[in-house]
Write a protein that binds this DNA or RNA. Structure first.
Length: 271
DNA sequence: AGGCAGGTTCTTA
DNA sequence: TAAGAACCTGCC
């Protein structure tokens, strides 16, 4: 099916923004995996995109996945170039990035794996994990098989040798513990949607292998609470160098997470 | 070849 | 409570 998008929307920038690890350029378009859902999306006009899914699947899932109900151009417009020239430049540079609405479980495991790894290594580990379980979910135009992201039960049923083969390193025990706790129902990520911000953070930090940074990524990219502001080495570098007097968090509430994405994306290519 | 990569846990004062 | 070290692995 074909859609028209009248807002910031840049597939390449989204793919490179570091919030998703199974969103890749492929031929003329991009392959996207979200849990066990596969999409091929291609830009075919100024604002027009061709999607491999049906209209029902678009309306029922992908529209929300791409956060198309929120105007990112309007949010960028709130940035005053005279007041904060660095953020303005970052937002211009990152124009087209959106915060995807991703799955809670997939984000939790993905960001547990992400610690002290670079993006290519994170992607490689996740793909190995998906292939290890091997539940086929799609096939790219180039004929590559794509596998569903494993459920908690599927990971819990793997051996530690299986996990070690996914290059998880010392994170293997974090992944396994999370899988067992979710599979058993002891941890119910969905029900945590009802918690307030502080309560949600508290719960996430109780998980083995989850610290403040990973918890904030889960809150921003999984729970889609757009005010979460994950601080990694890149963002800390920006805050230290560009905002010695402090970033104006109050001004952008409740959308600081979107500003974080612009700053992160900009910093990775300019610092 | 040794250091480091989108952190977190564990150990020590 | 707060620093500092240790940690898997892959890639310069």
């Amino acid at each position: 099916m074909k859609i028209t998008i009248n807002d910031d929307f840049d597939l390449l920038k989204i793919a490179d923004s570091g919030q998703c690890f199974r969103f890749n350029a492929c031929g003329e378009g991009f392959t996207v995996m979200a849990l066990d859902k596969y999409l091929f999306i291609k830009k075919v006009g100024e604002k027009e995109y061709e999607l491999s899914c049906s209209e029902e699947e678009y309306e029922g899932f992908w529209k929300e996945y791409f956060d198309l109900g929120l105007s990112y151009s309007e949010l960028r417009g709130r940035i005053d170039p005279a007041e904060d020239p660095y953020l303005y430049a970052a937002a211009e540079y990152g124009k087209g990035i959106r915060i995807l609405k991703q799955d809670l479980w997939e984000m939790l495991i993905s960001f547990i794996i992400s610690q002290r790894k670079n993006i290519p290594a994170i992607k490689a580990s996740i793909e190995k994990l998906c292939a290890k379980v091997g539940r086929k979910a799609g096939e790219t135009p180039e004929g590559e098989i794509l596998y569903a992201f494993p459920t908690a039960k599927e990971i819990a049923s793997l051996s530690m040798e299986d996990l070690a083969a996914c290059s998880l390193g010392y994170r293997d025990k974090y992944v396994m513990k999370a899988a067992r706790e979710v599979a058993s129902g002891y941890v119910d990520l969905e029900s945590w949607k009802d918690l307030d911000d502080a309560g949600l953070m508290e719960r996430l930090l109780e998980l083995f292998g989850v610290g403040v940074k990973v918890a904030n990524c889960e809150i921003l990219f999984g729970y889609h609470r757009l005010d979460a502001f994950p601080k990694d080495v890149w963002i800390n570098r920006v805050l230290d160098r560009q905002y010695p007097g402090g970033f104006m968090f109050d001004k952008y509430t409740p959308y600081n997470g979107i500003m974080q994405q612009y700053l992160f994306f900009y910093s990775r290519t300019t610092m």
